[in-house]
Design a binder for these strands. Structure first.
Length: 307
DNA sequence: ATGAGCACCTGAACGC
DNA sequence: TGCGTTCAGGTGCTCA
């Protein structure tokens, strides 16, 4: 569900509500949320381990790279008056998958039926809950050490993803060089989080349309200036989407306060198969590429000649 | 090493 | 009304 702009909208809210709070307890309602989609077998000791690892920790900040978000965790309570270490070493990784949400609630609020885990937080006399709600359980929670990758500290399981276009560590020249080596179709390459992170199915289609590139073009056989245009388009479209809170088709995507974003109104091709192109009136085509629904204008995005 | 395909889930919408 | 099929904003493992 959520791509970079949606995850960032959530991160901002999580940071505002939770930075400086202490985790006083946790509840794992569905242990599968602690696994990945391919490692679903979670035993009771893993649940206990997760709860023990986060309880008593202070939340320093909510951070993000691409679609991976995490809370940096500080010293245990009761560890004495020792100062905070110079750099945090532990993180609570949160990946929203296709249908994940983080919501801030009062303890008394009704529990939504897809709630998979709850963190109890306190700041002074104030208490609140951060709830992880995920219909499909493609999302994930986990306590992880922080490691260096692409110029900064990230949770260990995010060490393979590249910088995203909206972070200072992003190097456009490096991303372009990596992209230009790919022999798979450009639509699939844009979804490869190890080249550029944060781009998902919606923004890949939007970026290709805005740059006038056919989704089946092969990066290794495409002019670099055109590849640079696609990366610029991806950066711009995600930045524009972030400015209005991201894209929400339905109640599945909302920020921590339950609010929707408005970028669905600005989508030019995604979800418009069979409708007229906003630029030239040609019928927008929809086809499956790499198992993902892909939308494009066959006139504005000319098919590559070499296929 | 790269790339393709599929598995992992739940629920909504659609056709018959 | 009910049943089967298809689709959905992502990732990671396995195999060629």
């Amino acid at each position: 569900m959520p791509e970079l702009p949606e995850v960032e909208s959530v991160r901002v809210g999580v940071h505002e509500w939770t930075a400086g709070t202490t985790i006083t307890g946790a509840e794992v309602i569905d242990p599968r949320i602690l696994g990945t989609t391919s490692q679903r077998r979670i035993d009771a000791s893993a649940v206990d381990g997760f709860i023990a690892a986060v309880t008593g920790r202070r939340i320093i900040a909510a951070e993000r790279r691409g679609k991976f978000m995490w809370l940096t965790l500080g010293e245990d309570l009761g560890a004495g008056p020792a100062a905070e270490p110079a750099a945090p070493e532990l993180s609570l990784l949160v990946h929203l998958g296709m249908s994940g949400q983080l919501r801030v609630h009062d303890a008394a609020d009704e529990i939504h039926r897809h709630t998979r885990a709850i963190l109890r937080l306190e700041r002074g006399s104030e208490s609140l809950q951060l709830r992880f709600i995920d219909q499909r359980i493609f999302g994930h929670l986990g306590v992880q050490p922080l490691v260096h990758a692409y110029g900064r500290l990230v949770p260990a399981s995010a060490n393979h993803i590249a910088a995203d276009p909206l972070e200072p560590a992003f190097e456009p020249g490096l991303a372009l060089e990596q992209l230009a080596r790919k022999r798979t179709v450009v639509k699939s390459a844009l979804l490869d989080q190890s080249l550029v992170s944060g781009i998902g199915n919606i923004y890949a289609d939007e970026a290709l349309f805005r740059a006038g590139i056919h989704p089946l073009a092969i990066p290794a056989r495409t002019r670099k200036s055109r590849l640079a245009a696609v990366l610029d388009s991806a950066t711009r479209v995600m930045s524009d989407a972030l400015a209005v809170g991201g894209t929400s088709f339905d109640a599945l995507y909302v920020n921590v306060n339950g609010e929707s974003g408005y970028f669905d109104r600005a989508l030019l091709v995604y979800g418009r198969g069979g409708q007229e192109c906003v630029r030239c009136g040609t019928e927008i085509e929809k086809m499956t590429i790499g198992g993902r629904g892909s939308h494009f204008c066959p006139n504005c995005q000319k098919p590559p000649r070499y296929r």
